[in-house]
Nucleic acid binder design. Structure first.
Length: 415
RNA sequence: CGGAGCGUGGUGUAACGGCUAACAUUUCUGUUUUGGGAACAGACGACUCCGGGUUCGAAUCCCGGCGCUCCGACCA
């Protein structure tokens, strides 16, 4: 991709209505655009990152047996009435609308009910279970107060998975598998060291204890108690002697931290299948109840968290795994056009190797190009200039470490 | 939803109730420059959030609305 053709440019100043680091950097660097509070567009750079995050999650969900589907945004009120969740008193952040014909519809807040109905439509036998379906779908939540940029949005893309199992034990087995898959996701997007599986309360979803995945950050809305040795944590909302004992945690080993809820998994028991009368026949022809779980990761929030946590004073520092490009090729042109020729050839060479590259071919001054490069945060920068040409090398600078290397182009190792 | 603050060119700011709403940046032209957001010259760009009101006169004061940010409450 040539930077001269890239839709959106960087800007020096962030709009004053963004205070959070994640939104400020993502907007300045041209990854997202704000439509209104808690509602953001993804621009070309941002969409590449979003898709990479999506691909990682998809891989991990497929690896544990997930099957991808795509549910609708408009939802049938009747289904929600059956589980008692249509009432605004139960879920207070619904967006709802009315069909021209008169019927009320819900605008996707979550999908437990529709997914259960979908499965009910197709699944009648114990032989068809367990089933794990998931989707990447936009959720709408009428938050009283959107906040912290990408952290609490009113419209956001979410991966939500729903598991349907034949027994508590079968459910639990998958639940644990999914928890492990989640940890792999957070590790792969660069948040592994500071993300903890955290015991928490279930809110509007379930009465029992659930698990959240909390990423340490000062801008987080949650307070958790972390056991560094065991790599687990407990949310303040369930921080009591009984729960501590249940999970074998010692107050002395726990440290209080602020954190961002980057993912969560819920044991839902038989609540939704029961309420919606979804059952299957077992080997003996007797109807059996179904055990359900739901598992969510907000993609925008995850992107925002990566920016919030990994960026430095110069800009974003993308982990290799979700960076919009692998290499930022920065050419510092000379008058004779020699550098241009060389840079073009490096550019073509990189593309031929299958390495994604953003080529800064703009006729700008070095300072501006470097500042932009730091802001955008691509892991590896390759500089081609009159200087490097004179030495018969290119300059390689790593965004994260700041390490600089000069070597002939064909000696660069790409991981 | 309670509290606080704020709405002025694309962006960031300024302007006592009083001249043609100023400055920087961005953008465009040209000259020049080329290893960390250069310099000079010129140009474009604003119904000062919306609606009322007070006043000879409103960006400025008053009322109402809408929006944005922050704190709190709330929050898979």
């Amino acid at each position: 991709m040539k930077q001269s053709h890239l839709f959106t440019k960087t800007r020096k100043e962030a709009p004053k209505d963004e205070v959070s680091k994640n939104a400020e950097l993502l907007i300045r660097a041209g990854f997202i655009n704000k439509e209104m509070a808690g509602v953001y567009d993804y621009l070309p750079l941002g969409l590449i990152v979003l898709r990479k995050i999506e691909a990682i999650i998809r891989e991990e969900m497929n690896a544990i047996g997930g099957q991808e589907i795509l549910m609708t945004t408009l939802q049938d009120k009747a289904v929600w009435e059956k589980t008692g969740r249509w009432d605004d008193k139960v879920i207070d952040n619904w967006f709802k609308s009315t069909l021209a014909a008169g019927a009320e519809v819900g605008i996707a807040n979550t999908h437990e009910e529709p997914t259960t109905m979908l499965l009910k439509h197709y699944v009648n036998s114990y032989k068809d279970l367990p089933l794990y379906v998931y989707q990447f779908q936009t959720k709408f939540r009428n938050e009283l107060r959107a906040k912290s940029g990408m952290m609490r949005a009113r419209e956001f893309l979410m991966k939500d998975m729903y598991s349907f199992s034949r027994s508590e034990a079968e459910f639990k087995e998958f639940y644990e598998k999914c928890a492990e898959a989640y940890l792999r996701v957070f590790k792969r997007v660069g948040l592994g060291d500071i993300t903890y599986r955290t015991t928490a309360a279930g809110g509007a979803f379930t009465t029992g204890l659930t698990d959240e995945f909390q990423t340490l950050s000062e801008v987080g809305e949650d307070i958790i108690y972390v056991d560094e040795k065991k790599k687990v944590a407990i949310n303040k909302e369930v921080y009591d002697d009984e729960t501590l004992k249940k999970f074998g945690l010692n107050k002395a080993d726990l440290v209080e931290k602020k954190s961002i809820e980057t993912g969560n998994i819920f044991p839902l028991g038989t609540r939704y299948p029961d309420a919606l009368d979804f059952k299957v026949k077992d080997e003996t022809g007797v109807e059996q109840t179904i055990y359900m779980g739901s598992y969510g990761i907000g993609l925008g929030r995850l992107m925002g968290t990566v920016v919030e946590v990994l960026s430095d004073e110069k800009g974003i520092v993308w982990p290799e795994s979700i960076a919009p490009f692998k290499v930022h090729l920065v050419a510092l042109f000379d008058k004779e056009g020699k550098v241009k020729g060389e840079a073009e050839s490096v550019y073509e060479n990189l593309k031929a190797k299958g390495i994604t590259v953003l080529y800064d071919d703009r006729d700008e001054r070095p300072g501006e190009k470097f500042a932009d490069s730091d802001l955008i945060g691509i892991p590896m920068r390759i500089v081609v200039s009159a200087k490097t040409m004179a030495e018969g090398v290119v300059e390689v600078k790593h965004r994260k470490s700041g390490e600089v290397d000069k070597k002939p182009f064909d000696q660069i190792k790409f991981m």
